[in-house]
Design a protein around this nucleic acid. Sequence first.
DNA 1: CATTTTTGCGAAAACGTTTACTTTTTTGCA
DNA 2: TGCAAAAAAGTAAACGTTTTCGCAAAAATG
Lengths: 333, 333
Amino acid sequence: MVSMKEIAQKCGVSVATVSKALNDKDDIAESTKEMIRKVADEMGFMANASARALKTNRTYNIGVLFNNDDAGLAHDYFSIILNSFKVAAEEEGYDITFVNHKIAGRESTYLKHCEYRNFDGVAIILADFKDPEIIELAESKLPAVCIDYEYYNCSSVVSDNTKGLLDIVRYAGSMGHRKIAYIHGELTDVTKNRLMGFYDGCREQGITVDPSYVLQSNYHDIEQCSECTKKLLQLEDRPTCIICPDDYSAMGCLRVLAQEGLSVPKDMSVIGYDGINMAMINGMTTYMQDSIGLGRIAFKKLADKIDHPEIPAEHSVVFGKFIEGSTVAKIGD
Amino acid sequence: MVSMKEIAQKCGVSVATVSKALNDKDDIAESTKEMIRKVADEMGFMANASARALKTNRTYNIGVLFNNDDAGLAHDYFSIILNSFKVAAEEEGYDITFVNHKIAGRESTYLKHCEYRNFDGVAIILADFKDPEIIELAESKLPAVCIDYEYYNCSSVVSDNTKGLLDIVRYAGSMGHRKIAYIHGELTDVTKNRLMGFYDGCREQGITVDPSYVLQSNYHDIEQCSECTKKLLQLEDRPTCIICPDDYSAMGCLRVLAQEGLSVPKDMSVIGYDGINMAMINGMTTYMQDSIGLGRIAFKKLADKIDHPEIPAEHSVVFGKFIEGSTVAKIGD
DNA sequence: CATTTTTGCGAAAACGTTTACTTTTTTGCA
DNA sequence: TGCAAAAAAGTAAACGTTTTCGCAAAAATG
């Protein structure tokens, strides 16, 4: 690896001059800069990020933390957020490194790992805020942005979950449905907001919610969603429409319905959530989250926080849109 | 951030001793080590990766490069490989950073980026080997492993693509199919191997391949696969079985069949490739690649190369298994 | 007890940058 | 021409480690 020292020798200037020239500082003559740049190119010079980071305390590297227990990377919704975050970050010269809690193969904590790698900031996506390690990280001085979770201390970007379910219920209502079941995910903040939207929507339309219509499953869990669907089908007074936790687990719902010989939407209406590619292709009625926007805005927030650590945490909401597919039938005609 | 200097002061020893104690070198008394470790813990010491890398020329950071044009991260097959690579790497104390061709926001090359970040090695996944930047990287001295592509210069791990298609065609044959169409992906090495398997399988069973049964689509492209399916349906002598490039694009095939009122497998048999979650759930007949094995073995190869740069490139093959779903009908009964 | 060997620790240089400060050179102006 | 100001370049310290080498003290040996 060719270093500034070698460039300096070749050019007959000092290392400082090389550094300043390549960083385009304004106390170096333009002619000198050009000459140095040219030689640096010829010699195939590439700065050393470690040395630079050591000196400047800036790595231009961002840690991304996500819950690996779940589908994690393989979750369509997540991977799109991550990808758009990555694209935005790279545009601004940041790199993305995954956060874990091992250092040199030994157990450690997320925060320690971030300190070790000197990340300029960290994005916390889909993480479990019951985990004390996550709290430790969120409470730390490290600039952080949370996606899909609001923590008082960090900037955050969340989807409009309440409105999402409200839109869904309103649509179902407009199609004549009065017996609407909702299989919701684990009781996180996200879920609570969606439930609020669900109940609001029902109240708005004068629907009394039958408690046996509200079940809990896990996000992205096809099996559990299947089980819940079976339970709903066993009720003496079946719902006419089932809202699933997300598009992916809705596959489980659809599968059970098919097994029972029920056709969608004729015998049962089904609504998903997320708007993942596969759902769109299959004509699923769903609420499409703006995952790309989520990632992009999350990066922007984080970059702001990195550049201005003093600014207070900001919480923003990204709006999605309702997608009318072909899995909900008009009722009562 | 507390540094070794501060630990040294508190302990009344030199910085060198602290470094050696924390790295468990054997010229430090056990009692001293313990004392230093204790103080370091109390003070919340965390080593500085940049400083360490600068001195040792080892970052314990691996670059991961993948083709972003395609589905990239959002591709189920890819994300599983990446995840298993990541898990294996973290187990051994490595971190994963995405490779791109920007440095500080300015265009550069993949190789330069790797040099800048001082990656110990790089994993090249699903990349386009027509891209001169990729070649530059593969030709460089940087330890590299390619997944799903064999480049003479790098170690590689590929799936048993030939056997995959052979198994598929044999199965289709065993189910009585003689008119088998194959919509294959872009003509990469992977595809060529699969085609070999396809033709071998057909020959083995005395099937003369109708050239109009062999079409080209793009991997992971639902629309194109739909188009190809339409073309096949327009043939006067339709095939009885369609092999798709991958499970995901097979969705396009299934959609077209549904639109045409053809039921699967009664009116048309369909076979996918990859064995992604969604396909398995839907009972797709497919060939499941060992994506987890692919990622794990790829890391192992790369780690070997990092530790022993002198060893020659090794090419290995990972075997998947045929999955008999419910999308192929028995014919001729 | 004298000598050698082993053990434990420290001094200092080095890794490749950046940057505050200083020095030298050039320019502008009276 | 002389002098101040501005521009250009250099000096050197620093960032936080690791590591080679040297030295002293302790332990082993005869």
